[in-house]
Design a protein around this nucleic acid. Structure first.
Lengths: 151, 151
DNA sequence: CCAATTCATAGGTGCAAACCCATTATTGGT
DNA sequence: ACCAATAATGGGTTTGCACCTATGAATTGG
């Protein structure tokens, strides 16, 4: 009695946006339980994966406004998850480093994210999940050119 | 120099939310050129697919707040895309019907959406698109139980 | 060595989505 | 005939997100 219109279900982009949105929502909710937003996790991941960054590089990497980076780092620093230090070579810059507490936190967040993922992808078997991941990865690379390392 | 952190790319839900978001953004932009938002299209699609609705049923079908339905219909009616009429059987209800102008508009919107889809899915061939669609449809059905007709 | 540029920071703006509440008209049950 | 529930509507709130501007400190290029 309240099915979604077939005209919409026929659009892959509609499905993408709906499914993507609820995925995002669920992760967000989960992270909120730890007083963390998606950007916090993204920053921690960037620092863990690529090492210390100047704030301006973090902004560039994550395609986020530099002034917003400041706010996120304020919170991460307050939680003891990152450390800020003036770059002695260029004292305008602030080099941000993830702390070991930050790495622990990131691991927890990743665990949470995986749990959510388990829920979201429940109906798919392993092979299908792999296929979906591959397809999405290619779309992501296409849509955000330059933000994915090409092999 | 500004690649996305692999830790994030490894999460299917992350890809889902990012790709979904840009898909949504692009459709939204395209529709905005016609002074239309996604909900307008969804309402038109529901009316075209399932026939006239009482407003309350529209709200239930689209999982949207009834008071927001009012606002959307105000705009659709102003554009001549829908007609409102008191239900003689129950004069509390207002039955909403799509007009022929509305159907034409919906066709245009669908064309727009398909064009966007062509862009977004560009890197995939026909078979891959079909597979992606199928996977997403199953996820959608799982996440929004009761909103998809089971075959 | 001065001027233009860069970086971090603080503060504020605009927008859209999703809710929430109160009011009015109408109905159905008893 | 009355009362509780339901429909549409108008109005407003909140929240998250992206974006923009100004300022001070530091650097670099000509």
């Amino acid at each position: 009695m309240h099915e979604t219109p077939p005209s919409l279900l026929a659009l892959t982009t509609y499905l993408l946006s709906r499914v993507g949105k609820t995925a995002r929502t669920r992760i967000t909710e989960r992270l909120a339980a730890r007083d963390v937003r998606l950007w916090h996790m993204a920053v921690l991941a960037a620092l863990a994966d690529f090492g210390p960054h100047a704030q301006r590089d973090l902004a560039a990497r994550l395609t986020i406004d530099p002034s917003d980076v400041v706010k996120i780092l304020d919170e991460l620093a307050a939680a003891g998850h990152v450390e800020r230090a003036r770059d002695p070579a260029d004292r305008r810059r602030v080099v941000v480093t993830i702390t070991s507490a930050g790495r622990t936190a990131l691991a927890d967040l990743t665990t949470d994210a995986s749990a959510v993922q388990e829920d979201v992808l429940a109906p798919l078997d392993e092979e299908e999940r792999a296929r979906l991941h591959d397809l999405l990865l290619r779309l992501f690379a296409h849509l955000h050119e330059g933000t994915v390392r090409e092999r």
